[in-house]
Nucleic acid binder design. Structure first.
Lengths: 193, 193
DNA sequence: AAAAAACGTTGATAAATGTCAACGTTTTTT
DNA sequence: AAAAAACGTTGACATTTATCAACGTTTTTT
């Protein structure tokens, strides 16, 4: 299990992991299996773990006053599932994260992660890279959301995230884009011509 | 000028800057003054600098096919103005950044910043903190945008960013929220009752 | 002090998107 | 194999938001 993660770290750092470092990582990350629909995080709880997705798919969503779900993030293999705000601030999360498919995660607490980062330079580099990519992707998403109508948002999404279109049903994609499933259905119908 | 930045770093790190570190910083950051309306970054250019805002206010915006501007970010004192995607990927920026007020920036290239980070632990810590806060704020913004109608988005914005409401006119705020200035005007009229 | 530009507001109307209900199909569960 | 659940689509209609044009006020420039 951890091998997949070692490969991921090595791909994102110029310092190959030593055997000792691999042992530290194995000790700090614990494997967690989730069945489909099982929660990884529930609204109101403080998020204690960051989860590296070894296998499977998850969604992060909030629920509004009317009970409607809004998909904030989608995660598949090699993504990091967590609510950073809750984890860092130790505040109750406004989000839920649940498994959309049977999923395997490698979990680590924030304290253990900070500890590992003092010992393993490769991890620090990998996380900085992850933060950069995340910042870029989120910036793009914000720009697309405020600049474009629903149709163009969907087009850009389909180009930037073809993997998500494979793995998640349309109503989930629609919610991620901030539109209803009916609107997305009509947009796709239009686009087919 | 740099004193303000030293204070900022010390506030965001548990390692106080030494005299030597301060010298390194002074050598790497150059002061740049911008008059109101002057560009810091123009669409199509590769973003070479990160700018720490010592004084003033700027906006980052994209321009769509119809020539309309869309405000992606706003910056005031103690904010970092840059286009990370362009800077990291070395690709032409899709954004413009210009001064909304007369502004003073401390500029640093990515290479110099990476160099400084190897020498100054306080900077590394400060930047990680900055990345965390940025990730949290952007996540909130995305969630608000996909979950709420214009009125609630404005309410949340007003609560989370009262400083921006002071410094920027309504049509800029409206664009930041992804709505037109007319709609924001009507929302505010409603809310007054 | 005069002129120009920027800003905010309002009304009339159009366009985009949401809501609700119904239905057929596919997938999953029993 | 049957039943249930999940999914996607469509129509009718309501609501939200955008667009366009006009106008008065404030701020900036000349």
């Amino acid at each position: 299990m951890h091998d997949i993660f070692f490969a991921y770290v090595n791909q994102h750092s110029k310092y190959p992991l030593t055997k000792d470092e691999q042992s530290l990582i194995t000790a700090a990350f614990q494997l967690k299996k989730l069945r489909k629909k099982q929660y990884f995080l529930q609204e109101g709880d403080v998020c204690r773990y960051t989860g590296f997705v070894v296998k499977g798919a998850l969604r992060q969503f909030s629920v509004d006053d009317k009970g409607s779900e809004h998909i904030v993030n989608l995660f598949i293999e090699n993504y990091w599932a967590t609510d950073r705000e809750s984890m860092i601030m130790l505040t109750p999360s406004q989000y839920n994260i649940d498994a959309w498919e049977d999923t395997e995660l490698l979990l680590i607490t924030r304290a253990d992660m900070l500890d590992l980062m003092e010992k393993i330079p490769a991890l620090v580099e990998m996380i900085r890279l992850m933060d950069e990519r995340n910042a870029i992707a989120t910036q793009r998403r914000v720009n697309s959301t405020i600049s474009n109508a629903a149709e163009k948002r969907y087009e850009e999404f389909a180009i930037n995230h073809p993997q998500f279109i494979q793995r998640f049903p349309q109503h989930i994609i629609a919610s991620y884009l901030g539109i209803t499933k009916e609107t997305l259905s009509r947009i796709r119908k239009q686009a087919m011509k």
